[in-house]
């Protein structure tokens, strides 16, 4: 196989189908994190969600995303059912990312009642992520 990316060969630029990220299910908040498959899925599980959602726009080619991802998972996993984590691979669901103005990754949005209420771009310290999530869930 000569696919272009070494480590995530299967995930890069592939059909927008399901991607399995190892490690995601091992944190406490097993059900809290999911991968957005397409626009409808985003509408359904993010915009229409009763629970606030943190949306992590990331890419396989983005080093900082790989560091931020686990931090988000840990912090959000620790909040139980109070907040969900939606992961969007911008190369798979590109139009969605472009619609939300994602010009650099990682880009993280806080969504509540279908509205973006907060956001940050780039890798952040754990304490700042914690504060970001707490603001979203009102703690």
């Amino acid at each position: 196989m000569f696919t272009r990316t070494i480590t995530q060969a299967a995930a890069v630029r592939s059909r927008g189908g399901s991607i399995i990220t190892r490690g995601l299910g091992t944190t406490r908040g097993r059900t809290a994190a999911f991968h957005v498959q397409d626009n409808d899925d985003f509408q359904d599980r993010v915009l229409n969600s009763d629970t606030p959602v943190v949306v992590d726009f990331h890419a396989q080619w983005c080093g900082p995303c790989k560091l931020l991802g686990p931090r988000l998972e840990t912090i959000i996993g620790g909040k139980g059912e109070k907040v969900h984590l939606a992961k969007v691979d911008i190369d798979n669901v590109s139009d969605l990312a472009l619609d939300y103005g994602v010009s650099a990754v990682p880009s993280v949005l806080a969504v509540k009642d279908g509205k973006v209420v907060d956001k940050f771009v780039g890798l952040q310290e754990e304490s700042r992520i914690e504060a970001f999530v707490n603001r979203l869930i009102g703690e």
């Binding site: 272009r4 990316t5 070494i6 890419a59 080619w61 983005c62 080093g63 994602v102």
Partner: peptide, 24 residues
């Protein structure tokens, strides 16, 4: 070799995305 290729491909990935953003 693998680390070099990955680093270069990561840069290219960001360029690809930059073009998408620019077109949009």
């Amino acid at each position: 070799w693998g680390r070099m290729v990955e680093a270069i491909q990561n840069h290219i990935g960001s360029l690809n995305w930059g073009y998408r953003v620019a077109l949009r």
